[in-house]
Design a protein around this nucleic acid. Structure first.
Lengths: 189, 189
DNA sequence: GATATTTTCCTAATACTGTTAGTTTTTATG
DNA sequence: CATAAAAACTAACAGTATTAGGAAAATATC
């Protein structure tokens, strides 16, 4: 029998696609093996176990989100940068629910520190620079919008907003306008 | 052999405790059966399957959170009500991580509509009444703070804030002060 | 109180998933 | 070509969820 040509990278990428299609919770080594038409135990030459695979997807997801965020804020400042950053997060969550879920898989501190997560934090910091906030207020602002992006995306994608008027979209832009105003009011003289 | 005296209610409550101790993801029918010193299959006289059990925990969690929220806002208005409501959410998330996770288990529309979730939404609406917002702005405000409460609690409990200064607590109160200011600026004349 | 009935709990069996150990087969290297 | 390394396999085991059907306890009925 010819070899399947498996690779840790190919496995992680295929698993990421499966997660987007079927849900990160539904992801299973057995399903991944079936996808490559390979026996389940064969995967263990490339990943240590299922948590290792999931950590790989998490890193991929954080990296992809960081790329989007970086491109979104490039050449923008102030309100424009804030809105672009926000939309990058939200569209990522809506287009890649599996990756978005994977991004919250718990990582060991070492991987976390060098992951796209830390990168995203820096990008957010930079995106808010034009507001001229103090050091600590910029941290508060990053945590505020990060929490909001995450919470809103979660609630929207599980349908929490779909049974009341108005559209989720409207609340999104209204909130972002509010944050813009708030951060301008936080600005130091 | 004497009977164990199982009940759907006892099962759901014990499972909720297990979820708080070991994590909602780690919850298993087998572990629950061991807890009651009963065979696994015996549980099926009281719950339909594991999703049914999880849905039961979700309803319990939403109801418990609604109770906390209701008590928190009682007799308070404006900023006081907002902060009390926020702290009720955050303390619930920190004290009951398993229940907090369970509260996001997907429910069928029928259960969801009569669950504590809908109740919490109404409590939030009421808590913001003193700001004198328009109908739609009150919906936006509820969605905004709901997203923030959820996102912040998630990030805090997975340690996202613990590797940078200042304390998460500080960002929490700073953000709530910001929301108070924002909603006052949204108020109609 | 004896009998019938319902409910609870059990045993047994099946189907998945994840994991490890050890073996064969392919590929790369000298 | 011979040999070593890596990839994929077979086989086995443990854990979880689920269903079917049986025994026994609690409950209802006469």
């Amino acid at each position: 029998m010819p070899r399947a040509g498996l690779t840790r990278e190919r496995l992680v990428e295929a698993a990421a696609s499966l997660a987007d299609e079927e849900g990160f919770e539904m992801l299973t080594l057995a399903a991944l093996a079936r996808h490559f038409d390979v026996k389940l135990a064969s995967l263990y030459s490339h990943v240590a176990n299922i948590d290792d695979l999931k950590a790989g997807i998490a890193l991929l997801a954080l990296s992809a989100l960081a790329d989007r965020a970086e491109e979104a804020v490039a050449g923008r400042a102030g309100r424009d940068a804030l809105v672009a950053l926000a939309d990058a997060h939200r569209s990522f969550a809506l287009e890649h629910p599996g990756l978005f879920a994977a991004a919250r898989f718990p990582l060991d501190p070492a991987s976390a520190a060098t992951s796209g997560g830390a990168q995203i934090s820096r990008i957010c910091q930079a995106a808010l620079r034009a507001y001229g906030l103090s050091e600590t207020d910029r941290v508060h602002a990053v945590r505020l919008i990060g929490s909001f992006f995450l919470g809103f995306s979660l609630l929207e994608s599980c349908g929490s907003f779909s049974h009341s008027q108005p559209e989720a979209e409207t609340s999104w832009t209204r909130s972002l306008d509010g944050f813009d105003m708030l951060f301008r009011s936080w600005a130091v003289a």
